[in-house]
Structure formats: structure tokens, C-alpha cells
């Protein structure tokens, strides 16, 4: 058919942009969970990464010029949870952390991020998310992935984090407890990370809550400058910390879990503060 012919031509062109070194890293991604159709139980196909990797590495290396610290802390194998600060109105921080783990970690790992449930309603986007391993945020799905020794990225601040106003930049919002219960349940180590630079990519001066309610969106920020196709090209710095291990029962009392969560939050906040201190310029 004409459509499939066109599709294969497009994929050939996209794969042409792929750096051979990156191709080798994508080929080296763990594939033990794939079935005879080349997908894992959730529909993720590492081959699809080859198509989107050129765009992601362009953003990472040219646009945001990501500077990575502590990539050696990313576990070489086995399950782990990536926990960090969320910012920047649009989830470019998640994309950049995922790309960094793919390109800079000691062994390439595919990070499974969480996406909003309504993204399943968007044509192409939903398909791309599923194929590239991004999953609808659901604790049972996360637990299943961790049990299968995958790497899962969670932003415990949630929407509160990404829709922060400029005045509250780099101040962590409350952390949810879900990720800690998940870590306890699956005995997964937590790798903390801090993203510096994403807060300035789309400075929001106000959040029009009635408009957000009207449109059914999590927030309706007034961004300066509004309606830009991409956020501002700030200089990203991503810091990875040493893996933290917690032991206990997943159904422990809230006070106990809150203590663990506080430890992780303080670690991330410390990493953010440290990263800010070391930063010389927002854009350079």
C-alpha cells in the first residue's frame, strides 16, 4: 500500500540521522522482555527509539546543551526508580533525563516515564508513547515494570511540580508517597536526580485556574514569552545522586513512609541547591 511504503521511507530517512554510536547503544538496550513481535508486554519496542533519538539528541546536545554529572550512579542492571524535581511547564525535563540515561549511563538503559492518562486519546502521540516505553501512570503498572527489572522515572511532585510559577522556582512541592511504597514493595533502589535549567525554559508569571478548569488542563500558565514552539534554550544541568535503598513493608504506616520520603526529598533539594550554586549562567 502507498501508506506503508511512505511510512517505511520516512523511517529510513529518520534512521539515517542516527549517530552510529547511539545506534549501538540502542541495540545494546536490554531486550529480555520482548516477545516474538518485538515488543514487551506493554508494547514498548526499542527499535522505535531509533526514529525519535535523532530529535531527542538534537534537543539534548544542541538546544538545551545538557551537562551531566554523576551518570556513573545509574545502575548497570536491575530495577531502579529515578526520582527527581519536575519543572518547566512542558515535560522536556523528563525527555532530557531519559535521553541522558540512554546516552550517558555506563550501560544504556531505557527509562520508563509516566504520562498523563488523557494522552491515550491523542492520535500518534499515544502510539509513540506506548512504543517508546512511556506508560500511563498507574502504581500496578509501575510495580509490574520494576518486577521485570526495568528503570522507572517518577516525579513525586506531579503536576504541582511542573506548573510551578517562576517565583517558586527550584522549591520542591510536596512529594507523594506512592513512589516510596512502590520502592519498598519491589525492593527497588532509588536514584535521585536534579534538573537545573528547566525552570527558566518557560517562566510562568501566573496560573489562570478558571481557564485551566474550563479547558480541562492541569494548569493554564501565563508564560513569557507565550506561544513559542519550543521553550527557551536554557542550559540544562542534570545531576544524578547515589542510589538510596530503603527496607520495610509497602503497607507501613504513613508516618514511617513519610520519613523515608522526607529523606529522598531532602536529598533532591540538596542536589538542586548544589547544582544552582555551581551554575554560572542560565543560558550559557
Amino acid at each position: 500500500m502507498a501508506f506503508s511504503g511512505l511510512l517505511s521511507r520516512v523511517t529510513d530517512v529518520l534512521e539515517g540521522f542516527l549517530d552510529p554510536q547511539l545506534r549501538a547503544r540502542i541495540d545494546a538496550l536490554p531486550r529480555r522482555n520482548l516477545n516474538e513481535f518485538g515488543v514487551d508486554p506493554f508494547g514498548c519496542d526499542p527499535e522505535i527509539i531509533k526514529l525519535i533519538a535523532p530529535a531527542l539528541t538534537f534537543l539534548k546536545d544542541r538546544y538545551f546543551r545538557v551537562e551531566t554529572h554523576g551518570a556513573e550512579h545509574i545502575p548497570k542492571d536491575g530495577r531502579f526508580l529515578l526520582i527527581g524535581n519536575h519543572s518547566g511547564q512542558l515535560p522536556f525535563d523528563a525527555a532530557m533525563v531519559g535521553t541522558t540515561v540512554l546516552t550517558e549511563a555506563p550501560t544504556p538503559r531505557l527509562v520508563r516515564g509516566m504520562v498523563e492518562r488523557w494522552s491515550a486519546d491523542l492520535p500518534f502521540v499515544s502510539e509513540l508513547f506506548v512504543r517508546s516505553g512511556q506508560i500511563v501512570g498507574d502504581p500496578r503498572v509501575c510495580a509490574r515494570l520494576l518486577e521485570a527489572d526495568e528503570a522507572v522515572m517518577v516525579f513525586p511532585e506531579g503536576v504541582k511540580g511542573i506548573s510551578k510559577l517562576f517565583a517558586q522556582r527550584y522549591q520542591l512541592a510536596d512529594f507523594g508517597h506512592g513512589f516510596m511504597r512502590l520502592a519498598l514493595q519491589t525492593r527497588a533502589p532509588i536514584v535521585p536526580f536534579a534538573v537545573i535549567g528547566a525552570e527558566e525554559q518557560a517562566p510562568a508569571i501566573a496560573d489562570i485556574k478558571p481557564l485551566a478548569r474550563l479547558l480541562g488542563l492541569p494548569s493554564a500558565p501565563v508564560i513569557f514569552p507565550q506561544f513559542l514552539p519550543l521553550p527557551l534554550p536554557t542550559h540544562y544541568r542534570i545531576w544524578f545522586g547515589e542510589p538510596m535503598e530503603f527496607r520495610g513493608a509497602a503497607d507501613d504506616d504513613d508516618d514511617v513512609v513519610a520519613g523515608h520520603v522526607r529523606k529522598v526529598k531532602n536529598t533532591v533539594q540538596r542536589m538542586v541547591d548544589h547544582g544552582l550554586k555551581r551554575r554560572t549562567s542560565v543560558f550559557f
Binding site: 501508506f3 506503508s4 513481535f37 508486554p41 508494547g43 506506548v130 512504543r131
Partner: peptide, 22 residues
């Protein structure tokens, strides 16, 4: 035993797919 994306299921069947806007 397994699950697969619809497109790959149809590829095994050898069917031509006609993508139509929803």
C-alpha cells in the same frame, strides 16, 4: 501467551491496512 500491537497482528495476517481518521 503474548500480546502484540494491532499493526503487527495484521502484518502476520498479511492484510493491507487502511488508516482512516477516527
Amino acid at each position: 501467551p503474548t500480546q502484540a500491537p494491532l499493526s503487527r497482528v495484521l502484518a502476520v495476517r498479511g492484510s493491507h491496512t487502511i488508516p482512516v481518521p477516527g
